[in-house]
Design a protein around this nucleic acid. Structure first.
Lengths: 186, 186
DNA sequence: TATTGTTATACTCTATAACTATA
DNA sequence: TATAGTTATAGAGTATAACAATA
């Protein structure tokens, strides 16, 4: 047992680590909802951001960084290429590997994505004052660095599909009324 | 240590929401590693904790709270019952539903789980002073409450298997003081 | 008829590994 | 021979829906 005072409220909500996992999953799910309006998944948003920072990376590199096997990266990149967001260029020096680049359309979408991210940031931190918000960011950044997390990527990118939303008890949200009757017998 | 703080660095790491998702996934993965030594998955640990707080709940209730369909909860509970951690008792009032209870063995394991959680808490917050640690916990608790998250559960419990660990930059491992022993099995 | 628990089935997602083309 | 990219396939995990018992 820990020597910290774990009575009362702190025990019921769990420690910082639990709250981190809980809020982190929540944040990821809400972000996925937000970018779904751009028809993007978290993994897709992640690779766009990676390519914006370092263009010309090979599929192998990106797959490795995102934590997905190369075999899964191929159809993943295919979709982005079909949508005209990224572009495969042959590397003259080594014709085995592609160099991936953002298209102009990809850059445009990336900026829209930035707006979504900003709105998401505000919504997540509604409960905090601007001062606390910055305080929190600083604490988290320090923790992430100490834990050896590389900036810009997180394990959720492994998943192709965004997290399903879990709503145990929703205080304020329009229910997506899913018709209990499928509308026909089948 | 010399932490050269540069404005670019904070922006490169993303905002608080991104760090939350990143650290949250990391915390969940590390916690899963920790309880794997007790042969428990996060979802199993979650239901044990729920039963400790409110014994006698029905499978339906628990499945709903954990975010898994009842059909999946059945084999999930089966395993815990086979291991002697929980117990199904018939409800005399309504014979349709079971009342789930922790066994003595379940209570014992739960306390071992508490120790793992405490160690996990400390490891996650290594970078913080005790004061900052408490500060962070308070901020997160406030955010979780405002976001309508119910205490004690998080969406990660939906998954049966724990998150795979994502190590984008394993080769160097710059300042990770992590023993390669724990959780070596991926 | 509605609800709890259960079982069955079909479907999706995934990793592994074979295959090609370049080096 | 080794590596980047690709394709094929078998396996795991999942939700949906049908079912039996009880209310």
């Amino acid at each position: 047992m820990s020597t910290n005072r774990e009575d009362g409220g702190s025990r019921r909500q769990g420690g910082a680590a639990f709250l981190l996992a809980q809020l982190g999953a929540h944040a990821a799910a809400r972000f996925a909802e937000g970018i779904a309006e751009l028809d993007l998944t978290p993994a897709q948003a992640g690779v766009l951001r990676l390519l914006a920072r370092t263009p010309g990376r090979s599929q192998r590199e990106l797959a490795d960084e995102l934590g997905m096997p190369p075999s899964r990266f191929v159809p993943f990149a295919d979709k982005l290429e079909e949508r005209g967001l990224i572009e495969r260029r042959r590397n003259p020096g080594d014709r085995r590997l592609y160099a991936l680049h953002l298209t102009d359309e990809g850059v445009t979408l990336l900026s829209a994505l930035g707006e979504v991210a900003a709105a998401h940031e505000q919504r997540m931190c509604q409960a905090l004052t601007p001062d606390e918000h910055e305080q929190l960011r600083a604490l988290l950044a320090r923790m992430a660095a100490q834990q050896g997390l590389s900036p810009g990527v997180h394990p959720g990118y492994r998943q192709v599909r965004p997290d399903r939303v879990h709503r145990p008890r929703e205080p304020h949200s329009p229910e997506e009324s899913r018709t209990p009757d499928q509308g026909g017998n089948d």
